[in-house]
């Protein structure tokens, strides 16, 4: 710490937990963002299989991410079958990168904390 004693820590020195975004810091939603980032474009069925969710449950999480502007959902057809494709928005990409960065920072903090083994 470099500030005055008792002063609030500067933003860049704040604990990484304080910067976590509740929308992204959730196992399933982080999984959705990760898959969409890696795949560029992912089908609803693939997400459901990989994340082992029910359709309703996945739809709920997608709704949260779509409302936050992190993913775009596009409905279409492959032959006669309806398909739903999910793509990551720029905001989603940035949110994912920020979350991964914070997780790494958090792990680094935990590993370097002196004598804090419980």
């Amino acid at each position: 710490m470099t500030g005055e004693p008792g002063a609030a820590p500067a933003e860049d020195e704040a604990h990484p937990v304080t910067g976590l975004d509740d929308v992204v810091h959730q196992r399933v939603r982080l999984g959705i963002l990760t898959i969409a980032h890696e795949a560029r474009r992912v089908e609803f069925g693939y997400l459901r299989t990989q994340l082992q969710l029910t359709a309703g449950n996945l739809s709920q999480h997608l709704g949260v991410l779509e409302t936050a502007g992190l993913v775009a959902v596009e409905k279409g057809y492959a032959g006669k079958r309806g398909r739903t494709w999910i793509t990551l928005t720029d905001a989603g990409s940035a949110a994912l990168a920020a979350e991964i960065g914070r997780l790494k920072l958090l792990i680094a903090r935990v590993e370097t904390a002196p004598g804090d083994t419980g």
């Binding site: 937990v17 509740d22 810091h25 959730q26 196992r27 399933v28 982080l30 999984g31 990760t34 898959i35 980032h37 890696e38 795949a39 992912v42 693939y46 990989q50 994340l51 082992q52 969710l53 449950n57 709920q60 999480h61 991964i100 997780l103 790494k104 958090l106 792990i107 935990v110």
Partner: peptide, 28 residues
């Protein structure tokens, strides 16, 4: 995967899950 919020203090597992998912997509 569960739909619960990730328990605090579990970033390592979250990160390893993320890495595993990304690898799975690349393989597929």
């Amino acid at each position: 995967m569960t739909t619960d919020s990730v328990p605090a203090g579990d970033p390592r597992r979250l990160l390893s899950d993320t890495t595993a998912l990304a690898r799975r997509v690349r393989v597929d």
